[in-house]
């Protein structure tokens, strides 16, 4: 019941934490999609198999590094570059990095796995490589890329909670403060809100994924 009281009296603050959280996700994942899809297209090119392997491996290692450790490693790096090492910027950078693997890998795999017969047909009809990429490969890859984006966003909602340790604002704030001051109402409020947020966004993106699937590919 304390939780209820807490939410009741702090809904404006909770709302602003939620907005901060979403803003962080929106900014970082926009960059992540842009970078991940471009890089994914690049490494899926002919004769880049070795580059692709290395890039994907690096992105895979990236994912295994605990977020708290990555934040810690980013701080001195950013201050060495005279950039703010606390707050929004390091959080966005870390989230972009964590968002890479799912988007990059899915883009790469989806493009590589387009049925060769289709590419052959496209080439045989006189499509340029660019037209084959834009009219065949990418449209066919969209649902898979969307699934990667959804995965990335869900992961990042979780990591954005932890970004509160390096001074980013979001729904991690009440959890962190609650843990330090043993305020159960704050902990539960933060945990419940961020969980519901993650589930909601996941559900919405699942719908978007369906919507973005070209009609002929739906089962």
């Amino acid at each position: 019941m304390e939780v209820w009281q807490y939410i009741n009296s702090h809904w404006v603050t909770i709302g602003s934490w939620t907005m901060d959280h979403l803003w962080l996700i929106l900014v970082s994942n926009s960059f992540a999609v842009f970078i991940g899809v471009s890089l994914g297209i690049f490494i899926s090119g002919k004769g880049r198999e070795e580059v692709a392997d290395t890039v994907l491996y690096l992105a895979g290692i990236m994912m295994t590094i605990p977020s708290l450790a990555l934040f810690g490693l980013l701080m001195p790096l950013l201050s060495a570059l005279n950039l703010p090492s606390l707050g929004f910027l390091p959080a966005v950078i870390a989230l972009i990095l964590y968002g890479q693997l799912p988007i990059l890998r899915n883009t790469y795999t989806a493009i590589r796995e387009v049925d060769p017969a289709m590419i052959e047909a496209g080439r045989g009809m006189g499509m340029t490589s660019r037209q084959i990429l834009l009219k065949i490969k990418l449209p066919l890859a969209v649902p898979v890329i969307m699934a990667g984006l959804r995965n990335a966003v869900v992961i990042n909602i979780g990591i954005a909670t932890i970004a509160v340790f390096i001074g980013a604002r979001g729904l991690g704030v009440p959890i962190f403060r609650g843990l330090r001051t043993s305020r159960t109402d704050m902990i539960i409020t933060g945990a419940v809100f961020v969980s519901v947020l993650a589930l909601l966004v996941d559900g919405l993106l699942a719908l978007a994924e369906r919507k973005f699937t070209p009609e002929g590919l739906k089962k």
Binding site: I61, T64, I65, P66, L68, A69, L70, F71, G72, L73, M75, P76, S79, S85, F165, I166
Partner: peptide, 27 residues
């Protein structure tokens, strides 16, 4: 890492973060 964060000493954070990263990658 947390001690480093609370005391605002970046190098102490790294002293915890770097072995954590190594541990994760090795495992």
């Amino acid at each position: 890492i947390l001690t480093g964060l609370y005391t605002q000493i970046p190098l102490l954070i790294v002293q915890g973060a770097a072995p954590t990263a190594a541990l994760a990658v090795i495992l």
